[in-house]
Every structure is written in C-alpha cells, then in structure tokens.
Nucleic acid binder design. Structure first.
Length: 156
DNA sequence: GCCAACGTTGGC
DNA sequence: GCCAACGTTGGC
C-alpha cells in the first residue's frame, strides 16, 4: 500500500464537502498537470491520502482519505461548459485521468504547513520545498507515520 | 492582492 | 528544439 497527499482549496472542495458526499466518495477531477496525473495513475485501491487544504488562512493537512477507484478518464475534460474543459482530450483519446477517493477521517488537529516546514525530517518532502505546486504527490511511509504522530502532540 | 515559481504554449 | 510570453498555483 502506498501513501499520497492531495491538495484542494476548501472554498472549492474541502474535506467537509467530501465527508458530506453520498458514500463520502468523490471523483478527484480537474487535475491538469502531467506529473500529478501520472501519480494518480499509480494509485491503487486502498492507498491512503493526506487531504491538504491550500489557498486558505492556515494551509495544512486536515484529514485522511483513501482510493476507492483507480484511474479512469476525467470526462470533465470533454465538456465545453466545464472549467476543466480541454479540447485536446477526447473520449477516444483521453488525456486526463481521475481517481475516486473516500473520506476516512479528520485529523484530531490541523497540521499546518508552517509546522511541517519546521521539521528537519521532512525537508525532502516536495510539499515543503519552495515553489512546489504539485497538487498530487507521493508520501513515503516514514513521512506518513511521522506526520500522523504529530496529531497527538501539542504544536511545537 | 501581490508576486515568485513553475509548467505550458507557440513562434521561429 | 529553443525560449519568450503567458497563465496558474498557492503562500504570505
């Protein structure tokens, strides 16, 4: 089993929105970056995901989700009315994929980006590197466990 | 709202 | 294939 981190803007679709969906499940559509898409293609059912809130007052990891359907074509790319429309993608030759993710739980507290940046052990995590804009990224098992342990610790 | 960093596009 | 211009991300 692998671990991932996926970013979303809470004003658009936050973890509370995921928890409120039927079956607490939602297709992760709208990814229009090749690197992020390729990571989604590598996801397997049961993989665990850190749900990250970006573009908000306190960006950080807020909860956990899991993969319940592996990569399949993102049909929003074919819809001219969608803000994710990409005329280069067609049903015969889909360019973009998505996965379905299901809510698992909120973390006991938000783990803010500022706190993650302060941890030497996470220095090589793409998330904390300057200028990183990847919206989907792998998380090593060591990092996953380290970050999970933070939710029971008071902020340092 | 600003703007640094980065990915993509398209002219040549 | 290069690279300038442009658009987007996302922290602050």
């Amino acid at each position: 089993m692998a671990y991932w981190l996926m970013k979303s803007e809470p004003d658009v679709f936050g973890i509370d929105d995921l928890a409120a969906r039927p079956n607490q499940t939602e297709p992760w559509d709208g990814v229009r970056n090749y690197q992020a898409r390729n990571f989604m293609r590598a996801m397997k059912i049961g993989d665990q995901i850190f749900f990250y809130h970006s573009n908000t007052a306190t960006p950080g990891i807020v909860g956990i989700a899991e993969v319940v359907r592996e990569a399949y074509p993102d049909h929003t790319a074919w819809n001219p009315d969608s803000k994710y429309y990409d005329p280069a993608s067609t049903p015969n030759k889909p360019r973009w994929d998505m996965v379905d993710v299901r809510y698992v739980r909120h973390l006991k507290r938000i783990i803010p980006l500022t706190e993650l940046k302060g941890l030497e052990a996470l220095a090589d995590m793409p998330l904390v590197r300057k200028g990183n804009r990847l919206s989907v990224m792998p998380v090593s098992e060591a990092h996953w466990n380290l970050i999970l342990a933070l939710e029971d610790k008071p902020r340092t």
